[in-house]
Nucleic acid binder design. Structure first.
Lengths: 122, 122
DNA sequence: CGGGATCCAAAACGATACTG
DNA sequence: CAGTATCGTTTTGGATCCCG
């Protein structure tokens, strides 16, 4: 691995900091998790995620492609077919994303309750 | 746990979805990780994170407090002392956040390289 | 010291319509 | 089908100053 290069998210201007901040983009986790089961077409992915506009999905995918997490493959057919799938590096993020997902689903009710209590104060 | 309540991040309007999206707020991971070692005062936390303005740090902390992840304690002194620390629920997020952090630091050079190659194309 | 208040810039997100 | 173009809105982040 690259641990010898000593990236540190607490250091301002360290690339790893910006990378971590990007992983939290509103749609990034859902896209990554959506592709967990294998390649999907644009419209399939869109359906799977739901309520994401084409423009936003496109830009999210572009960023992920640029960062080497997702691979885009165009099949020269009529009509065209475009597949998106996780790269190996993208796959290595699946674990962390799954963890985040599970945490969110398992703690949702606690968080909701905390909000109610907080809002009830004052 | 609450898994029987069947929250699902892929379901539109499911609270868990919004909660997961919130975990990726630009500063949330850094704040949580910053508090990993124990309670910190506002200014200590700010120094630790670096380059975050008071306004933004305040609002991030408020949200985390509202969601029950962070506890805010005011000591009636002159001058005032305010401590922030993780709650138990907040602690349970430390693992996932650490994972994200390590991933970012370990894969930073790969991502950077992928970007270069992507930008070199066309 | 720990912010709140104000104002502003920029980015992210979204709705809609349209095209190769 | 897989987007792009355009436009507008919303959200987020930042700079600066001030106050208890």
């Amino acid at each position: 691995m690259d641990s010898h290069e000593s990236f540190n998210v607490f250091v301002q201007n360290c690339p790893s900091r910006e990378i971590m901040q990007r992983l939290g983009d509103k749609w990034t986790p859902l896209v990554l998790l959506g592709l967990a089961g294998g390649p999907l077409r644009f419209s399939e992915l869109r359906q799977r995620i739901g309520s994401v506009t084409p423009k936003v999905l496109t830009s999210t995918l572009r960023t992920l492609e640029r960062d080497g997490l997702v691979q885009r493959t165009v099949f020269a057919q009529v009509p065209v077919r475009v597949d998106y799938e996780l790269t190996e590096v993208g796959h290595s993020l699946l674990g962390p994303m799954e963890t985040l997902r599970k945490w969110s689903e398992n703690h949702a009710s606690k968080v909701l309750k905390a909000r109610d209590e907080f809002d009830a104060r004052d």
